[in-house]
Amino acid sequence: MSFKTLVAGVALGLSLIAAPAYAETIKIGATPGPHAQILEAVKPILAAQGIDLEILEFSDYVIPNEALASGELNANSFQHQPYLDNQVKDRGYAIESVATTVNFPIGIYSDKYENIADLPDGAKIGIPNDPTNGGRVLLLLEDNGLLDLKDGVGTAASVADIVGNPKNFEILEVDAAQLPRVLPDVDAAGINTNYAEQAGLDPVNDPILRESPKGPYVNVIAVRTEDKDQPWVKALVDAYHSDEIRTFVETTFNGAVLASW
């Protein structure tokens, strides 16, 4: 073997050792808006490790878990822990969270009133029709003395749990994504931050009542239980929890979205 061939062989060996540990694609589901935007910022961090992050956007809160459970996705990033817990309980999915991501304090918005105390007797209030996000709005109303709920219902609160309604509010359950569209037709509506932003609302300044950022509604990355210990999961979480992504969240969303790590 010539010296030139030996040097070339050593160089090839070193290049193989230095190559990224991964060479695969992660398909991750997200809702449009901040969740997808943050993942776009995560994408080049993973690309440097040889991982292609393929982001698929879904316009509702049901299909991303169905797609994950069926194997069409490797992960998703769109939901908070109480919603995931409810989905697992109701549908038997073998999926679980592997990391927290960001918090989107939910807000109650109104085109007609500037203060929650101004809502009249019999006001129509739209809330998300999925159990956990609808429950968030009901708990927010209760925390501000506008409704009474059964003791102990917690994050599972539903319209059926209302035991006191002194202002006779009419609670209307609406698909979460449609709430910005029905806002002109109701007196107020509890709208998730991602849908509020898509509709041109300011999640920091426009709500007439806003949820505290401290609570159980921090969003998560979910994967199939069988995959939770895969190396790519750690790579995804580490990239998401990087200082670069924290800075991206803080500078892009100006307080409407809060990093959890």
Rank of each mutant, 00 (worst) to 15 (best):
M1W: 09
T5Q: 15
A8S: 13
A8F: 14
L12V: 13
L14H: 01
A19S: 12
A19V: 13
P20F: 12
T25P: 11
T25Y: 11
I26D: 05
K27W: 10
P32W: 02
P34G: 08
E40P: 05
A41W: 04
V42M: 06
I45W: 00
I45S: 11
L46P: 08
L46N: 04
I51A: 06
I51W: 09
I51H: 11
I51S: 08
D52N: 15
I55D: 13
L56S: 11
L56P: 01
E57C: 01
S59F: 07
Y61F: 15
E66A: 09
E66W: 04
A67Q: 15
L68Q: 07
L68F: 09
S70A: 15
N74Q: 14
N76G: 04
F78I: 06
Q79K: 05
H80R: 03
H80L: 01
Q81C: 00
Y83L: 11
N86T: 01
K89T: 07
G92K: 12
G92Q: 09
Y93V: 06
A94E: 15
T101F: 03
N103L: 12
N103S: 13
N103M: 12
P105Y: 07
I106V: 09
G107R: 02
G107C: 00
I108S: 00
Y109P: 00
D111T: 07
N115K: 12
D118N: 12
L119K: 01
P120Y: 01
D121Y: 02
G126C: 08
P128Q: 09
P128C: 09
D130P: 05
D130E: 15
D130A: 04
D130V: 07
P131M: 02
T132L: 03
R136S: 15
R136M: 12
V137G: 02
L139C: 04
L140H: 10
L141V: 01
E142Y: 07
E142N: 07
E142T: 12
D143A: 14
N144L: 03
N144V: 03
G145R: 04
L147P: 05
D148M: 10
K150L: 07
V153C: 10
T155N: 08
T155A: 13
V159I: 14
A160R: 02
I162E: 04
V163H: 11
G164S: 11
N165Y: 03
F169T: 02
A176T: 06
A176N: 01
A177P: 00
A177Q: 14
D185P: 01
D185Y: 14
V186S: 02
I191Q: 03
Q198S: 13
Q198P: 02
G200Y: 10
G200H: 08
D202W: 04
I208F: 07
L209H: 06
L209E: 03
L209P: 04
P213S: 15
G215F: 05
Y217N: 14
N219Q: 14
I221F: 11
I221L: 14
V223Q: 05
T225S: 15
D229S: 13
P231Q: 10
W232Q: 05
D238A: 12
H241E: 13
D243W: 01
R246C: 08
R246G: 04
F248A: 06
E250C: 08
E250H: 08
E250I: 06
T252R: 11
N254R: 13
A256K: 07
S260Y: 07
S260Q: 14
